[in-house]
Structure formats: structure tokens, C-alpha cells
Amino acid sequence: MKVKVRFFARFRELLGTELIAEVAERTTLPDLIQQITQKNIEGYNAIFDESGHFREYVIVMRNARRIDLEDAEKNIVANGDDIAIFPPVAGG
């Protein structure tokens, strides 16, 4: 099945604007993003912490709805999902 993943701001510079990922059944949302980013160390480290969890300030949206990062692994991705990953910016 196919899932669209979109990156924003700095994640976009590291990982590209968007991609369509081919994923296996029963893949969790964090697993999907780890699979996509594992070959890009900088990109991976920007999104995940040392223990492989989403960094706590990252905003993850699935089909326009915010994902609670504490329960991220409960999200099993489905065909046609639109995942958006966004790092808040801080400057002013």
C-alpha cells in the first residue's frame, strides 16, 4: 500500500518536500518514518531522539489530525494516508 509523507521547514531541507512510500501491512507510523529516514542520519536525528522516539517538540499530523506522540505507535498506517511532519521554528 502507498502512503504520502510530507516534511516541512528544516526537515524538508534534510529529507525532501514529500514522498510516496510503499509500506507493508500493519506498519506503525513511527516505524514508517524510521524506515524512510534511516539512510539519512541527519534527517533521522532531527526527528527522532536517542531512544528512537519522536522528539517531543515535533508535530506529526495524520490525515490533517494531530498525532499524540505518546501514542504514536498505536497508529497503524493505512493505504492513502497523508502524513505531515513539522518542526516548530523559534526565531523572531
Binding site: R10, V89, G91
Partner: peptide, 10 residues
């Protein structure tokens, strides 16, 4: 609220 970094803003 507003915030920026490089060419990105929110």
C-alpha cells in the same frame, strides 16, 4: 504568534 527560521515562518 509568529516565529521564523531561515526562509521558513509560522
Amino acid at each position: 504568534h509568529g516565529a521564523i527560521c531561515g526562509f521558513y515562518g509560522q
